[in-house]
Design a protein around this nucleic acid. Structure first.
Lengths: 213, 213
DNA sequence: CGTCTGATTGATCGAATTCAACCTCCGTGG
DNA sequence: CCACGGAGGTTGAATTCGATCAATCAGACG
């Protein structure tokens, strides 16, 4: 263990190309993994919410050229690679639990691939909103179909592979259908069932509330 | 262990929604994980080549509603969940190795997200060709910038989130630039450097030739 | 107040889809 | 040995979705 660390909005949590000497879990705030292309385009490949592991990759000798950025003020807890290595030596149950969290992340990646490859902008937006609400609710940061979304439309657009303009219009279409309200950073889902239906959202892939093997 | 199993082209290796009682590795042939939407659209979320683990997910209590299909004649080797469980109890090194292979899969997912979200159809196609060649070469199934690609353009299109027509035109554009040749199922990369450049391909994410931790 | 960031709107452009046809190769059966 | 049929690949034309460019607007904050 090596305590906690705080990051301001837009601060870099993991610098692209560098492998940190520890893994971290997000305690507060929203963060995201991203990759930048030559032309400057940015793809967000993962959104991290409180409770998520950020860097479970790094303790195995995996190399990545992507980075992690804080989308709001963030706090993380670090665990050194040595400690984690120790856990894998002596705690098979816990190891499987950690492994399982990386599998859930991969399942989310596959879901996003499906969104980006096959769904319309509007349906994909609906799906992502459902996912965020479900994940936040699981860690008691949302309830009553309301949550606080501290990230900008630009970030969301880079997540869904859309332009800000088009994402904005997708959101407005959802508003026009009375599925959601979105004011400042407060999102309210006014018709959960329809939003789920429109986004073809099935929370199975998030692997919540499951017993540990 | 429980031996090997053979599948014809188009056979279902894992039926959507079912969790098999074992995990499998692909010994021969190409296969893929997919998800179908209500409107019938299909997204391929992973391509499995010989040597790849197909189902490492399933031995941890993870649920998925996606399936795995054989794109060509395939042969798989099965390992029961019990055996694998045993490995995680007594073989931390091997456990980390297996875990690491799931992390490499996740890294590939993130790369595909970037392709689909930010790259043009042509660049994404180039990238995928580079990835396939690199992976096949690592298992001695490709060399000299040539490989055998037993899957159809429809499958490739569903992988990249494109229509067959547009994928076809992207391929032809690569041909026109003299970057590749593609006849029947034989693909020849005639200008590797340019193809890599055009697709912004960096094989780091594939995690090959790395020491095991 | 000005200024800044993020959201919104309009107009135009281009990439990718869709629909429909046609071609090419190859296996099969008469 | 050749006609037939089917799967996969190729092409063209019309259309649609989403991107781009450029302004404008709304609220927060010093």
């Amino acid at each position: 263990m090596s305590g906690t660390r705080s990051f301001d909005t837009c601060a870099s949590i993991v610098t692209p190309g560098k492998t940190p000497p520890h893994i971290s879990a997000l305690l507060e705030g929203w963060a995201g993994r991203y990759k930048i292309l030559r032309n400057g385009a940015r793809q967000i490949t993962a959104l991290y919410l409180p409770g998520d592991f950020i860097d479970l990759h790094s303790f195995l000798p995996t190399k990545t050229d992507d980075g992690v950025i804080a989308f709001s003020g963030c706090k993380t807890a670090q665990v050194s690679h040595e400690s984690l290595q120790q856990i894998t030596e002596t705690e098979p149950r816990l190891t499987r639990l950690l492994w399982r969290s990386t599998l859930a992340a991969a399942a989310t990646h596959r879901e996003w691939l499906t969104i980006m490859g096959q769904m319309s902008a509007g349906a994909g937006t609906a799906h992502l909103i459902c996912e965020l609400y479900t994940r936040l609710k699981a860690v008691r940061l949302a309830d009553n179909h309301r949550f606080c979304c501290p990230i900008t439309q630009l970030t969301l657009a880079d997540t869904l592979g859309l332009s800000t303009v088009h994402l904005n219009r997708s959101i407005q279409a959802l508003r026009a259908k009375n599925l959601i309200q979105w004011h400042r950073d407060k999102v309210t889902i006014t018709d959960w069932d329809q939003l789920v239906d429109w986004g073809e959202f099935d929370p199975t892939y998030l692997q919540m509330n499951e017993p540990v093997g």
